[in-house]
Amino acid sequence: MTFSELYQAYKNTVYNLALQYVGNREDAEEITQDVFVKVHENLNRFRKDSDWRTWIYRISINHSLDFLKAKKRQKRSILSQILRLDNPDTRFEIPHFNHPGVELEQKETIAFILNCLNHLPDNQRTVIILLKIENLPQPEVAKIMKTSSKAVESLFHRAKKNLEKLLNGSEGK
């Protein structure tokens, strides 16, 4: 498979996955660009026994998580550290929610749910995104996350419980 064929086949997969993590078009486009630059650099090193789709999913997930961590670090300037010290509500908020796949009337609700998702540990957030938003089957999620189907199931169960707590906790405030 050539690079441009790969791009045509997976451009929207990468873009949509990045959108579920960052919640806005500009950042998702930036992530997509960086993911494909990485793909281009590692094309020769790619092991033929694993499949492209899983490989690209993994790169996209890792890059999206790294992107969010870098953004968070950027935000924590000395001043904001003093002002927002240990205020969990302001630490993980999506700065400007601009998701092209979300209807206007549901924008607020989805922004709120995705914000709550951002409070979950990385693997729990990823399992909800892959299973519920990307609608991938459990065995494929297990393959992407390099774990067993059973582990994915229990991870999803834990993620659901934690999300439920967050949704209720945030609503009560």
């Binding site: 579920q20 998701h99 796949g101 979300v102 549901q106 749910i113 938003i133």
Partner: peptide, 11 residues
């Protein structure tokens, strides 16, 4: 609600 998020096309 999350599963209703539509697929978006990249520029």
């Amino acid at each position: 609600i999350l599963s209703k998020i539509r697929r978006a096309e990249i520029a």
